[in-house]
Amino acid sequence: MSTTAMARPRSAGPGAAGNGKVSFMGVLRSEFIKFSSLLSTLILVLATIVVMVGIAAVVSWGIGFSLEMAAESPEMAAEMGDLGGIAATLPASGLVFAQLIVGALAVMVMSSEFTTGSARSTFVAVPNRQMVFWAKALMITIVAAVVALVSILLSFLVVKPIVGHYNLDIDFSSEAFQRSLWFSVLYVVMVALIGMALGGLLRNSAGGIVVLAALFFVLPMAMGGFSTMVDWLAKAMRFLPDQAGTALTQLTVAPGGLEQWQNGLLMAAWSLIPLILAAIVLQRRDI
């Protein structure tokens, strides 16, 4: 490029930039452009779907295989109980693993703004930090919900013929499947919102993902391990987000578990409180 070419007067007069103002829809659109323009996010979204469908298929096959074994020994069949109820939750069985991918993705949506410095561009364009924050939260909610929904529906299509082979059936309109489907979607949204909050609070991808993994994997496992020895741990454990969230996907409440409405409240609290905290911190801290 030559100096003269670069220095030429602006081709368009005033108005070339339009006269739009900052709007929530505009900011939401901006967030979707940023999200979809990264190869890494697209790979993670795809990975989530593949993992969900893959695990559902493997688990279904395993259940079916156990059923065949059970048919040969009546004692085992009695032990396993009602498998029709289990079948309904099979399409969502990959949730435990998918949650971490979606959660990590949500952490990075927020933390990468700060680690890459793009936060400067973002918040100069939209100095209303709350508008950016809640547009991001809405974007993440939509992405997480769609990814979970698509994964479970695809899993349903894969699982149905597999369990059919073992004379089990999943009824799409059954209460058990519908409950599993929608509460699993909500569950993934909750994990994503907690992830986004962590990304905003820590402004660090690795830190956010580690805390998220600790909350959803390490803490439940550690507490579960010691709960046989320490009585109150078993009670405290019920308040963890993964316990409340997964309990809601089941038709029946486990013995000693919280009521479903309590689980619902817990899930709402886990989704919103970290997020609100992160919104307040974003408002106060310098970019």
Binding site: K21, S23, G26, R29, K34, S37
Partner: peptide, 8 residues
């Protein structure tokens, strides 16, 4: 992405 915020 920045233009979108102001509908530019």
């Amino acid at each position: 992405s920045l233009a979108a915020t102001h509908s530019i």
